[in-house]
């Protein structure tokens, strides 16, 4: 892969262009990694009222709790000033997948899914967080994982 830097006054802000002859797994991986590094940060407020900026890649789950939208991260839970569908529109294409009417999870943080005898589908995240997936969204999770597969070096 060639990495080139172009300094030209025509660029008002830093732009990253990914160029390729075709859309390949490698291109998708590069796009995904760049989005994770440079996507806009999200303002969040913790339980004590302290404000901070959250990195989308560090968020494990985003869920609706009453009228609020909460973001679960490794370091704690934060209230975010966005509706769930707004969050999904902004980040759903690259990092998050909807698992139920009221929750999105970070696709990179999924450890495994379990189905109990009664048929409840539980998702376990890499940090130990567990929640439920609705049946309709299982296929979506699978499709997203298939398209997000990293390129294997070899």
């Amino acid at each position: 892969m060639d990495i080139r830097t172009e300094i030209d006054r025509k660029y008002g802000a830093v732009e990253l262009h990914v160029c390729s002859g075709a859309m390949t797994d490698e291109v998708r991986t590069v796009e995904r990694e760049l989005h994770e590094m440079y996507d806009r940060r999200i303002p969040g407020t913790d339980a004590r009222g302290n404000r901070c900026l959250l990195t989308p890649g560090g968020i494990i789950s985003v869920y609706a709790e009453g009228q609020k939208v909460m973001a679960l991260c490794e370091e704690g839970t934060y209230t975010v000033p966005a509706k769930l569908y707004e969050f999904e529109q902004a980040f759903g294409e690259h990092l998050f997948v909807r698992i139920s009417k009221s929750e999105l999870v970070n696709i990179r943080k999924i450890r495994k899914l379990d189905m109990s005898i009664s048929g409840t589908i539980r998702i376990r995240m890499k940090n130990g967080y567990e929640t439920y997936v609705s049946r309709r969204n299982v296929a979506k999770i699978r499709e997203r994982l298939l398209t997000e597969r990293p390129v294997k070096n070899g």
Partner: peptide, 8 residues
């Protein structure tokens, strides 16, 4: 079928 806490 969207009530994820009820089993399938």
């Amino acid at each position: 079928y969207d009530l994820e806490r009820i089993g399938f």
